[in-house]
Design a protein around this nucleic acid. Structure first.
Lengths: 209, 209
DNA sequence: GGAGTAATTGATCTAGCGATCAATAGGCAA
DNA sequence: TTGCCTATTGATCGCTAGATCAATTACTCC
């Protein structure tokens, strides 16, 4: 009665199965946040017994951290791809703001906010969160430092300014998530604030809207 | 064997007991975040059977929302008390930044971030989060509007600017929580960004450090 | 001082989580 | 075709969560 009727057992190469499991986990997290990422949810999505997921993963904490890192990593790469086409530092910073605040990153914002909250209870996740934040910081610092070299920006602490910019943008995204509003309405104002932070001429950082 | 040895049953007036339970719940949330706020944790802290907590609370979701609202409400009042002594709008905004970013609000930041994350799974909490954000927004908007009247600030949208300021500050606090660093190092820079947002003369918003 | 009210207990139910492991069976090598 | 290796199963354990409710008992009022 309680046994699941049938299951056509398919045997795969360990590497393939492991990849399948991580892929399913990533999809679940993207759709429902990190809190939806459970052993059984992954198993069901792959179409496999729950024990198999556990077999391929040392612990769920590790899988969650891994998925978090993968998702943010992918986001960083997306943004880097967008910025690659933009040469001017001011325009690059504007494109960064536009991209991160275009109102179509709600799914990632959920992951981001849940990461902050859950990191307090999971050491692996805490590490992943810190690492991925530094990833972002490095990316932004480079833009700011470039601007300083070209004379468009003027600050003696590009690293600190980068942290501040990231914190601002994340906070506004999180707020929009909680309120159910669109972040993009903050993009223009954020550009003005960014100019003050990097020491750019007012109006020199262009954003779409 | 499994029964707890003894318990001196003390009977109290419903109102008193209810208050006791809410107080204990608030203390737990302050110390360990909203995720530490469980039926049994509250019962243990009050020194009472778990069933009694359930008896006084329609559901834990409601209690969590209530506690969240109480905690933020108290924070808002604290800040209002600090700002009451400051007449000048620019100085008021500076005092707001100083107070919210003095690095001693970690406990509240945990509640705040967990609130964002948990609100997705709890309708009562989602309502409380929205309500308390509006509380903050009203407070900040008033400062900005005052500044516009006095000529210290110049913006046509004090309400939107208020949202932006709150989002920024919350984001920086959350980031500092995740990184384990001190928010206060962002206060000065945040004041510069705030000047750009409210349309104040650079350097006109004073902060402590 | 006795009775009745209702505050309080604590065992119990359901549900979900991660983790474990003996048993099973798929697919490749010989 | 046969046999072995191991990928896979699924039942099960231990834990924690919120919720429920019949039984108990502390207090108040007459």
């Amino acid at each position: 009665m309680s046994t699941t009727p049938a299951r056509s057992r398919t045997r795969k190469a360990p590497a393939e199965r492991a990849a399948e499991i991580v892929a399913a986990a990533t999809a679940i997290a993207r759709e429902g946040g990190l809190s939806a990422l459970t052993l059984r949810a992954v198993a069901e999505r792959v179409g496999v017994a729950s024990g198999l997921v556990a077999h391929y993963q040392p612990s769920m904490d590790d899988l969650v951290a891994r998925v978090y890192a993968d998702l943010v990593e992918e986001e960083v790469r997306d943004v880097e791809a967008v910025l690659a086409d933009v040469a001017d530092p001011a325009a690059r910073l504007g494109a960064l703001i536009d991209t991160l605040m275009d109102g179509e990153r709600e799914e990632l914002t959920v992951v981001w906010v849940e990461g902050w909250a859950m990191a307090r209870r999971s050491e692996p996740l805490a590490g992943a969160v810190r690492a991925q934040m530094e990833r972002w910081q490095t990316l932004v610092e480079r833009i700011v430092a470039d601007g300083c070299r070209s004379g468009a920006f003027a600050t003696t602490e590009p690293g600190e300014v980068a942290w501040e910019l990231i914190g601002m943008i994340d906070g506004l995204n999180a707020q929009s998530l909680a309120l159910g509003t669109d972040t993009s309405r903050f993009a223009l104002r954020t550009a003005r604030a960014a100019e003050a932070l990097v020491g750019a001429r007012p109006g020199s950082i262009p954003v779409r809207s």
